[in-house]
């Protein structure tokens, strides 16, 4: 029996989760929400994490009904992510690990998402579409690595949606993407936007510049409503994502697809993926906001896998890095 605690704070969510042999005992989270029209800055986000770390940690222990002595390993996000928030969260993990006398494990954030997705959905060997505010990757496992088949060559899809939400001054509560999704449900007039797919890679920066520039005029003239623009944006960027995922599935001959990451809880994206999967005779695995959005349990779960395969991270190596690719990690727990 192995009990792992995970600390996640690579972006604006601070999460602490406890996992015991594939069962999530607790997974509380606190999100730093900025005023409409603004993104979250590293300094303020780190401050948010510092302010709420102990309260979220206590909540995780209380909900799991365990005491620190029952924990076997302390896991934290090493990267990728924003420097200051990562470091603030790692300090908490390092401190409790030393107080409790427990070994530590440094976890790659993206691997956390993938392992959590596999645990929750039971998908065996899926093509993974990892979509969030900072990442857009199509991943497949082969020979002890999660290999990146396709990715964005500029900004992430979540970043594109968030920045458009700022143009419309949408609320960041609970998240800008969620509010775009709600507006998009009421839109129906389609505006053709730049659609950029290069092999299995995508690009969103041109599309974002285009819609950022056009939106104010289109709205002012009354040709399109904010709902129509959200709808058109979602339809276009999601179609690009489904296309590269499908191409990767065809390329790898895979019959399973898993969506992870914050944008992965978008129902329209899931619906489009479901349609594509059905047409190919493949199966879609998706999770909800508890596990799609950054959380502590995913770090605990990936750390649990690493710990069971014999890894630990010596204290002197428990650093953070903003750049840490999914395909750099040696996957010691899968064959």
């Amino acid at each position: 029996m192995v009990v792992a605690i995970g600390f996640e704070g690579s972006a604006n969510k601070l999460g602490v989760g406890i996992v015991k042999d594939g069962v999530v005992l607790s997974n509380p989270r606190h999100t730093y929400i900025t005023p409409p029209g603004q993104g979250f800055l590293p300094k303020n986000t780190a401050q948010h994490h510092r302010e709420h770390a102990l309260e979220v940690l206590q909540k995780a222990l209380d909900e799991a009904k365990i005491s620190p002595k029952d924990i076997d390993v302390v896991c934290y996000t090493k990267g990728p992510g924003m420097g200051a928030p990562l470091v603030s969260t790692a300090i908490v993990a390092r401190t409790v690990a030393q107080l409790w006398g427990k070994p530590m494990i440094a976890v790659n954030h993206c691997i956390g998402h993938i392992e959590m997705g596999r645990l929750v959905t039971g998908a065996e060997n899926p093509i993974v579409l990892y979509v969030s505010g900072g990442n857009t990757q199509v991943i497949a496992y082969s020979q002890r690595r999660y290999r990146i088949f396709g990715e964005t060559i500029d900004i992430a899809v979540g970043n594109c949606l968030d920045r458009f939400a700022r143009v419309l001054k949408l609320s960041n509560d609970p998240s800008p993407g969620y509010n775009i999704e709600q507006l998009a449900k009421k839109g129906n007039k389609f505006l053709e936007l730049p659609y950029v797919v290069k092999g299995m890679d995508v690009s969103f920066s041109g599309l974002l510049s285009f819609i950022e520039e056009k939106a104010p005029q289109l709205l002012q003239k009354g040709e399109y409503t904010p709902e129509d623009l959200c709808f058109s944006l979602q339809e276009t960027v999601f179609a690009m994502l489904i296309e590269i995922t499908e191409r990767a599935m065809a390329h790898c001959g895979s019959q399973e697809v898993l969506i992870v990451g914050g944008v992965g809880c978008n129902k329209r994206l899931q619906e489009m993926m479901e349609t594509m999967a059905k047409e190919r005779g493949a199966k879609l695995y998706a999770t909800d906001e508890r596990f799609c959005i950054d959380n502590g349990a995913m770090i605990a779960q990936a750390g649990w896998e690493m710990f069971r395969s014999g890894q630990t991270t010596p204290l002197k190596d428990t650093t953070c890095t903003q750049r840490f690719r999914t395909d750099e990690v040696d996957i010691t727990w899968r064959s």
Partner: peptide, 9 residues
């Protein structure tokens, strides 16, 4: 035709 895509697109 891809039924997941908007017809115009």
């Amino acid at each position: 035709s891809k039924s997941y895509r908007h017809p115009i697109l």
